[in-house]
Simulated assay, not measured.
Amino acid sequence: MVPGGGGGSAPSVAAAETAAADERAGPGTEVDALRRQVEDLVSKTDQLEKRVNEVVGFYDGKKHGSGGRKGGRKDGSAKGMPDLMRQFGAIVRQITSHEWAEPFLKPVDVVGLELDDYYKIITKPMDFSTIQKKMEGKDETKYNNVREIYSDVRLIFANAMKYNDEQHDVHIMAKSLLEKFEEKWLQLLPKVENEERKQKDEETNGVPKANISPEEAIAKLAKDTDDELTDINKQLEELRQMVIQRCRKMTADEKRKLGAGLCHLTHEDLNKALEMVAQDNPNFKITDEVVDLDMDAQSETTLWRLKFFVREVLERQANVASGRTEENAKRKREICNALARTASKRVKQQPNSEL
């Protein structure tokens, strides 16, 4: 087992384009780096989806009269950031007590595990023992607020997912624990934002203002989530352009086979394929009764996306057909066996002709 020590689904477009680059580059560090970037985007979008659900859940609660999620303090008796640090410490203890937490408790033994490339990939290692020391103020270092601890805890799992591929046990363990951690963080987040607003007000004019309302906390969460989604879309587009530059040109024979494969798609899957073409070519009309798809006029990105989509669909169709063939063969065997048993009974019931 190779622990990651501490890094961050990518959209299918990026995954297909990375696979296209793989066709040209083969196994190598460049393709691995692209895959890791895709995995990082996937992880980020997974977490943002949880935030979106949090926002939607709040407003659904308001709509049905439940008042949404409770947040803020009505009595104005702020316990302050130390109380939040204690609450966050409890979350950290819950995560570190999980049966899968062992690889992340101490710094990665880079020398003992002979991980020669570790520091090339992981530029900022992190582990829970380091976090614990900073929380206790040891080694002349100390966290100033809860968000700093949150960032380091997330870094532990992000590093592990970045260094280990998605099939590796450590990657799977890190992703699972990160999801559990993010769920608990979202429950604490309104209190954190409430306290941050209070401290900011006090620093501005020395007079504490009313605590932030649940609606304001959720509105800020929604805005922050939207900003992060915009940033991810920007990263995705940059990655997309990078991959496009590395895609080899599809041969005429491959284009011919792709066209033949499209002819074997169902009506629904064919519409999905045509929508892919329209995404890169706004002038392409898929609403016409007769659609003329010129393979030579399509970009390399579109062609590779179509290729991997068609391959996936045809493999799925083949698996379904294989299952039906086996089911039909089984049914035929059952019918033959039943006929054989019936014939045997008739022979036994026939009177002996010699009597």
Rank of each mutant, 00 (worst) to 15 (best):
S322C: 07
G259M: 09
T251Y: 04
T230K: 09
A343R: 02
A297N: 06
A222F: 11
G323A: 12
R324F: 05
T342V: 05
A318E: 15
I335S: 07
T302P: 10
E289Q: 09
K257A: 11
R305V: 01
L274W: 07
N233E: 13
G259F: 00
T266R: 01
E326P: 00
H267R: 11
A329Y: 05
N337P: 02
N271E: 14
R311L: 10
F308D: 03
S344D: 14
N319I: 08
V290H: 14
E327D: 14
L265N: 03
L274T: 01
V313K: 14
G259C: 08
L239N: 09
M276T: 02
L306Y: 01
K348F: 08
L306W: 01
G261D: 04
E275A: 09
L265M: 00
V290R: 15
V320F: 09
T301R: 10
L270R: 09
E228Y: 02
A278E: 11
E327H: 08
A278T: 10
V277I: 13
Q279K: 11
R240H: 11
L270Q: 08
T225W: 00
R248N: 03
L274M: 13
L274E: 01
I286W: 04
H264L: 09
E312Q: 07
R316D: 14
N271D: 14
V290Q: 15
T225V: 00
P282V: 06
R246V: 01
D226W: 04
D253G: 00
I335F: 08
N337I: 02
A222G: 05
T342M: 06
A318H: 06
K348R: 13
E238K: 12
I335A: 09
D226M: 12
M295E: 02
V347K: 14
N283H: 14
R305H: 05
E326F: 03
D294R: 11
F284E: 04
I335D: 11
A343M: 10
L221Y: 07
M242S: 06
K348L: 12
R248K: 15
L236E: 05
V310M: 02
E300D: 14
K223W: 13
N328C: 11
D296N: 11
E237C: 01
L258A: 11
E254G: 07
D226G: 12
D292L: 12
D296S: 10
D292E: 14
A273L: 05
E326Q: 10
C336T: 15
E312C: 09
L239S: 10
I286F: 07
M250R: 01
T225Q: 05
W304C: 02
D224Y: 05
K332T: 10
A329L: 06
K257L: 13
R305S: 01
T266Q: 05
G323S: 11
G323K: 04
I232L: 15
T325K: 15
I232S: 02
P282Q: 02
L339F: 07
D294T: 09
N283R: 13
D296R: 03
I232N: 03
R256D: 13
M276C: 04
R256S: 12
E300C: 11
D269R: 07
Q241E: 14
K348E: 12
W304K: 00
T230C: 10
V347H: 11
E237S: 06
Q317L: 00
T251H: 09
A222K: 12
